[in-house]
Design a binder for these strands. Structure first.
Length: 259
DNA sequence: ATGGTAGACGCTCTA
């Protein structure tokens, strides 16, 4: 089974490229983030025509997450218990959706950005991650293969950013964020892509010619439970997909699983 | 040339 995760940065503006990529890459399951669409705006028909079942969660023009599958799509769950929420009134944003596909419990997650170290969004990000970790431990407790796929908005290691000097005192690399990420590893989840993609980035800012200057970050991850990680045969970051006009600022991340 | 983007409910916010 081939699975992938991809922050598409607006499915409505990206649908042609995503469709081309699916035809080319032939994945069985795709977790998408930042669809930036309500349910009535999401192009379900385009994916169904390619043979995928689709579960999408989108409330407005921000966030939005989806799971596409051609190996079954069951027990869809929108959001998770304990999501701290955001806004007034406090409410969960469209940042997580779960579905069981081909015997694996997938979660497509779009972790809050955090924005800046002293921004209220940072406390929200850390609380959100803490709750997700607690739920993830519960989901994996009975040995079910669980894959937490998405845009984590954290660069866990210094080598995951093009310049630590540049990111010093900025979001994505701070000790509390890295601790929140590491809590998943401490709980037994495994970054299954890193061993197969040393030194690679998954995201390049649209600004300041970041892509041609190779100024990227590794912030998109597939964290697998032990039983999921044991089946990983390979992984790749499709840097080619970041090229050209109309590209998302994130590259797709692909994982190959043994049956 | 010391800047440079992109997408959305676009005259401003988010990343």
């Amino acid at each position: 089974m081939r699975i992938a995760t991809w922050n598409v940065n607006s499915i409505r503006s990206r649908i042609d490229r995503v469709e081309d990529w699916l035809r080319r890459t032939d994945v069985d399951v795709l977790c998408m983030q930042e669809t930036k669409a309500r349910e009535d705006q999401f192009p379900f028909d385009r994916f169904e025509a390619l043979g995928y079942e689709v579960a999408h969660h989108g409330l407005n023009q921000w966030n939005g997450v989806a799971v596409l599958s051609r190996v079954g799509l069951d027990d869809v769950q929108v959001g998770f218990e304990g999501d701290p929420g955001w806004g007034e009134p406090l409410a969960a944003e469209a940042r997580a959706i779960g579905a069981t596909c081909g015997g694996v419990r997938f979660w497509s997650v779009y972790v809050p950005n955090g924005r800046a170290l002293d921004d209220p969004h940072m406390a929200y990000k850390l609380a959100w991650l803490g709750q997700l970790r607690d739920r993830a431990v519960e989901w994996a407790a009975d040995g079910t293969p669980v894959a937490l796929c998405g845009d984590w908005n954290i660069a866990p290691r210094d080598e995951d950013v093009w310049s630590m000097e540049y990111y010093l005192d900025k979001s994505h690399v701070s000790p509390p964020e890295r601790a929140a990420f590491h809590a998943f590893l401490d709980a037994g989840f495994v970054d299954v892509v890193r061993p197969h993609t040393p030194g690679a980035y998954t995201y390049w800012d649209y600004q300041r010619l970041a892509f041609p200057k190779k100024r990227g970050m590794r912030i998109d991850f597939v964290l697998g439970s032990a039983s999921f990680a044991a089946r990983v045969a390979g992984a790749a970051i499709d840097r080619e997909e970041r090229k050209g006009t109309g590209a998302s600022d994130h590259a797709p991340v692909v994982v190959e699983l043994d049956d």
